Amino acid sequence: MYTGLMSIFFKEKPGNLNESFTSILNQTLLPNEMVLIKDGVFGDELDRVLKNFVFNCAKKNIPVKIIKHNISKGLGLSLNEGLRRCSYNYVARFDSDDINLTNRMQRTIKAFDIRDDVSVIGTNVEEFNPGNKSIKKKVPLRSNEILKFSRFRNPMNHMSVTFKKDDVEAVGGYEDVPYFEDYYLWLKMLKKSYQFLNLDDILVSVRVDDDFYHRRGGIQYVKKECKFQFKIYKEGYISIFRCILNIFFRGTPRLLPKTILAFIYKVVRSN
């Protein structure tokens, strides 16, 4: 039994949200409940997509809890608020613009049954831009590899992750760390020696359009990157040497033109 958790930004595209909702309802192992956060005031079209999803969930006997924000609070605070409303210990993160393969949750819950000691399970994902060739975003599989990888890059594809609510809450849950909410949570848990696992399967298709690179480029993103790297250095997650290297190798490309940044992303993610 598991809860599906999704925060929906008020500027989300209705068509993307509808595809994401459809992929959830097509799961071979359906959620036992859904917790949705409306992060900001929705337009009419986005609201219609949400109401249609609630209607379809009711036909499948899936209760839906909706949390409404009149003003956007951001992803970290929204997810933490939603987490408190989750009834089941297994919580699956669903992104509002990505497509879940039909067997994602059945494969994930089966993995938990086999490895009860694991707190967080993710998967490899496929990144796609309609009209272009998709690429596989691979992540390390075992917990010791995930720990090593976490010192310079996010070791989990957040949109593919399912975790144990009790363990996440034990480290304080999500925090307001713009662009790095999930990454910071994994670092907190890894430091406390919680076990992680990534399945060597592509179980989520991730939408990577022009907006994706726009959001991850520019001086404002670099400033947030620097702030995050210094934060995790001060808290003992990385050394000062690693902090400087991360800022250089992760920050510098974000100042490049969008087309070059997109090329770098594709090279890094496919290796």
Rank of each mutant, 00 (worst) to 15 (best):
E12C: 11
E19K: 15
I24T: 07
P31A: 13
N32A: 15
E45K: 13
L46A: 06
L46F: 03
D47I: 05
V49N: 05
F53Y: 08
F53T: 08
V64R: 04
K65D: 05
I67P: 02
K73G: 07
G76L: 06
L79M: 12
R84T: 09
A92E: 00
M105V: 02
R115D: 09
V125M: 04
F128K: 07
K133Y: 03
K136F: 02
P140L: 10
K148P: 00
T162W: 09
D166V: 08
V168L: 14
V171S: 06
G173N: 06
D176C: 09
V177P: 05
V177I: 15
L185T: 04
W186F: 13
L187Q: 00
Y194P: 05
L197A: 07
V204R: 07
V206S: 02
Y213R: 09
R215Q: 15
I219N: 09
Y221C: 11
Y221P: 10
Y221Q: 11
E225W: 09
C226R: 11
F230N: 12
I232C: 02
Y233Q: 06
R242V: 14
C243A: 14
C243D: 00
L245V: 12
L245A: 10
F248M: 13
F248H: 00
P253T: 14
R254L: 12
T259I: 12
T259Y: 13
I260G: 10
F263P: 01
I264A: 08
